[in-house]
Design a protein around this nucleic acid. Structure first.
Length: 564
RNA sequence: GUGCCAGUAGCUCAGCAGGAUAGAGCAACGGACUUCUAAUCCGUCGGUCGGGUGUUCGAAUCAUCUCUGGCACGCCA
């Protein structure tokens, strides 16, 4: 048993179900289908440790007022062998359960036993899931959208792993298609400007105007001179792309790595075109009648798939679209490589693509639910309370690289993981670098450092923790101690919820709550210098807190310093 | 124009498979360091949950209408 909540839910379910049966036998209640029993932690501590609204939910079936039903059930409750101490009926008909403290002490046992494995749940049952995120256009630097998607995707992957899924992190390299064409044309123009002079060669209006393009052209020119001058244009562009693209991809890989993200798979879009997968996928769709021909192009039949409109798959010049490659890509993930589930993280500007992509996999016998798409809203950076569009240093759009330099990996990851993906995110650059009390990154790290410092101090005096079975945990009964244990007990539940809702940001918020509970405890209760037995109990509680905080910080890949 | 996302305290956001008196952080104000790290803690102040209607025992949560903001509607990705 890893999650104490599961155990408690089972106990409450069993007690309630037996009470329903007893009532039915006595004839005080008719046969009632309870269904999914909702057991929650009430908002107010006065309302008990757990509560259920079952009496209200079955009021129609019972043909009685909820409080009356609850009363009948209470009369039949049998708590032997459970944590339940007492119950009461409250409000419109809630049944509140007050538990013996043992459940909290048992939770500490679980933490001590599982150590860094505490929090693991078996929601995924080993299902293979592919999490694809960032997948930035390799023609330029990583931007703030990539930064948010990166933090969310990476943490989601970690959470799913902890929740029992077999997780693969993947980056889809868009090394084919129009933007690569444009990349080549831009490189070529800059290169020719170096050869013939800037005023002799015009630069395409819709080309990539960034300085990085010039750097690539210059690097090639420095190494190979004007050797491309007489090469046919198409060949020339290919050579320049083959020169510059690997450099960009390596750079992306390096920056993401310093950001804490390391992928299992780097998947090339180009490979799908070259090995015929794209043609095969479109051919299959055509065979099954999911495409139509119109204006010399091949379209995905929108009507047949319940979509608003048709989508071009093969242009009238024979070149497949991004959509066509994406269909082949998801075929590859879900069928060729056999993932049970594919999760893509896309910026809000791609939301229009969601419905058609999910629909487009169904002709292959796949279910829409096998492709989950997390849409995250856009990011705005603020500096001095004002919208910051440009980098202070370079004067250009702020890249992930600049952000990491300015605020560091920990703050960047923390803030991008603080808000749910559906919320717009305002990133306060000043707050992120502030080494003070209102910076939540330090708040959490400080809690960890404080614990380590305390343990160190005790060790210096020769005091180390005892095995948990030698410790009298019942001495932990102060309000702050109870509150902290309660908070620690929620961890597996938080993992499960984060995984279910694909919302890793709730873990970041949770670890802040753990830190807060610890700080309150620390201010209210002393460890060092207390009477031996109490000291040992508290030492154990502190150690459990350390385990949980470190565990989460490792999961979201933020440093857990032992000193600050 | 159509679609998607959002609108909750002065600010940034939780809560939204309906539940009890709507929460947190920041800001503001007042307290707590001879004792394990005050990068901390305790307290006070702060709300017509954008607005209307509906569904029901009960709505911030669901439905519908409406207002506001962001995004998307291409043989771009």
């Amino acid at each position: 048993m890893n999650n104490i909540f599961d155990k408690i839910r089972e106990q409450i379910y069993s007690v309630v179900q037996k009470a329903f049966n007893a009532c039915e036998q006595k004839g005080t209640l008719p046969n009632i289908q309870v269904g999914e029993l909702s057991v929650e932690v009430p908002r107010e501590r006065d309302f008990g440790d757990f509560s259920t609204n079952v009496a209200m939910q079955v009021s129609k079936q019972a043909k009685l007022p909820p409080r009356k039903t609850a009363e009948l059930l209470l009369n039949e409750f049998d708590f032997t062998g459970t944590y339940i101490d007492r119950t009461e009926i409250a409000g419109p008909g809630f049944i509140n359960f007050y538990l013996k403290k043992d459940w909290l002490y048992d939770c500490l046992h679980i933490i001590q036993e599982k150590k860094e494995k505490y929090g693991e749940v078996d929601l995924g049952k080993g299902l293979k899931v592919n999490v694809e995120f960032v997948s930035a256009n390799p023609t330029g630097p990583l931007h703030m959208g990539n930064a948010r998607g990166g933090a969310l995707g990476d943490c989601l992957a970690s959470v799913l792993k902890k929740a029992g899924y077999d997780v693969t992190r993947e980056f889809y390299i868009n090394d084919a298609g129009n933007q690569i064409e444009k990349f080549g044309i831009s490189l070529e123009a800059r290169y020719l400007q170096l050869v013939f002079g800037e005023d002799k060669v015009s630069f395409p209006e819709d080309g990539y105007h960034g300085e990085d393009i010039m750097d690539h052209a210059r690097a090639y020119f420095d190494r190979h001179g004007a050797s491309l001058m007489d090469v046919p244009a198409e060949e020339r562009r290919r050579i320049l792309v083959d020169f510059a693209l690997p450099i960009n991809i390596r750079k992306i890989r390096e920056i993401l790595s310093t950001y804490g993200i390391d992928y299992d798979v780097w998947f090339s879009e180009k490979s799908l075109h070259e090995n015929g997968d794209v043609k095969k996928a479109i051919g299959y769709l055509t065979e099954k009648g999911y495409t139509i021909e119109k204006d010399g192009a091949i379209w995905l039949n929108g009507e047949k798939l319940g979509l608003e409109k048709d989508e071009v798959l093969i242009r009238n010049n024979g070149v497949p679209t991004y959509m066509a490659a994406d269909i082949a890509y998801h075929y590859n993930k879900l069928i060729t490589r056999g993932f049970d589930l594919a999760i893509d993280l896309w910026g809000a500007d791609h939301h229009g693509h969601v419905a058609r992509m999910k629909a487009a996999i169904t002709p292959f016998g796949l279910k829409k639910e096998q492709l989950e798409i997390v849409i995250f809203q856009l990011v705005r950076l603020f500096r001095n309370g004002e919208l910051a569009r440009m980098s202070k240093r370079t004067g250009k759009a702020i890249a992930l690289e600049d952000l990491l330099e300015e605020v560091g990996k920990d703050a960047a990851r923390f803030f991008f993981n603080l808000k749910s993906s559906g919320s717009h995110l305002d990133f306060d650059l000043d707050l992120a670098v502030k080494q003070s009390n209102d910076n939540p990154v330090f708040y959490v790290q400080y809690a960890h450092a404080r614990i380590c410092s305390l343990l160190r101090k005790l060790a210096e005096e020769g005091i180390t923790g005892k095995p948990i079975y030698e410790v009298d945990l019942t001495l932990l009964k102060e309000k702050e101690e109870i509150e902290l244990m309660r908070k620690l007990s929620e961890y597996p539940e938080e993992i499960a919820l984060s995984a279910k809702t694909l919302e890793p940001s709730r873990l970041t918020r949770y670890v802040m709550e753990v830190a807060a509970s610890f700080h309150s405890f620390y201010n209210a209760c002393r460890v060092k210098g207390e009477e031996e037995k109490l000291m040992m109990a508290r030492l154990l509680l502190v150690d459990c807190t350390r385990i949980v905080i470190k565990n989460i910080l490792e999961l979201i890949k933020i440093d857990a310093p032992e000193k600050m």
